[in-house]
Simulated assay, not measured.
Amino acid sequence: MAALHRKPGKDMVVEKNTYGAFRKSGLEEKPVEMGIKEVIVTGVMTNLCWETNAREASVRGFRVFFSTDVTTTSDEELHDATLQTMAYGFAYIAYAQLMAALHRK
């Protein structure tokens, strides 16, 4: 599952059958229609769904934020390697302050 947050209680939810959420889901078109230029990637496993979606969003021209403290994976080395890769060319690495800023709005 993937969601596009529009307004509280009005998320667009798409089903996915692979690690990425963009393919054949409408998830690329809706943010563009809405004028969205930045995305925050969330998920469960850092090196699978999170990484795939961050890469997909980046190559589609979105500015991507990847929060380090709300994800994990089965191996700390995989987690750290993914964070380094994301920071190198696909996403801005954010910490708890990103989530705190969102809750202040």
Rank of each mutant, 00 (worst) to 15 (best):
M1E: 12
A2R: 08
A3T: 14
L4H: 08
R6M: 12
R6D: 11
K7I: 12
P8T: 13
G9W: 08
K10P: 00
D11R: 13
D11Y: 14
D11E: 15
M12V: 14
M12G: 04
V13I: 15
K16F: 05
N17L: 09
N17T: 14
T18D: 12
T18A: 12
G20A: 13
G20M: 11
A21H: 00
K24L: 12
K24W: 06
S25A: 06
L27C: 02
K30R: 10
K30L: 14
P31K: 05
P31D: 08
V32S: 02
E33P: 04
G35K: 00
I36K: 09
K37R: 11
K37D: 00
E38H: 15
V39P: 04
I40C: 08
T42K: 03
T42L: 09
V44E: 10
M45Y: 05
T46N: 13
T46G: 10
L48E: 10
C49K: 00
W50K: 10
E51D: 14
E51V: 00
N53P: 07
A54R: 00
A54H: 05
R55H: 09
R55Q: 05
R55I: 09
R55V: 05
E56K: 12
S58E: 02
V59I: 13
G61F: 01
F62H: 05
V64G: 02
V64N: 01
V64C: 02
S67H: 08
V70H: 01
V70T: 11
T72W: 13
T73Q: 03
T73F: 01
S74F: 14
D75F: 01
E76H: 06
E77W: 03
E77Q: 10
D80G: 10
T82N: 07
T82D: 06
Q84F: 11
Q84C: 11
T85V: 09
A87D: 06
A91K: 01
A94V: 13
Y95I: 03
Q97H: 14
Q97I: 07
L98H: 02
L98F: 09
L98T: 01
M99W: 07
A100H: 07
A101L: 07
L102T: 02
R104T: 11
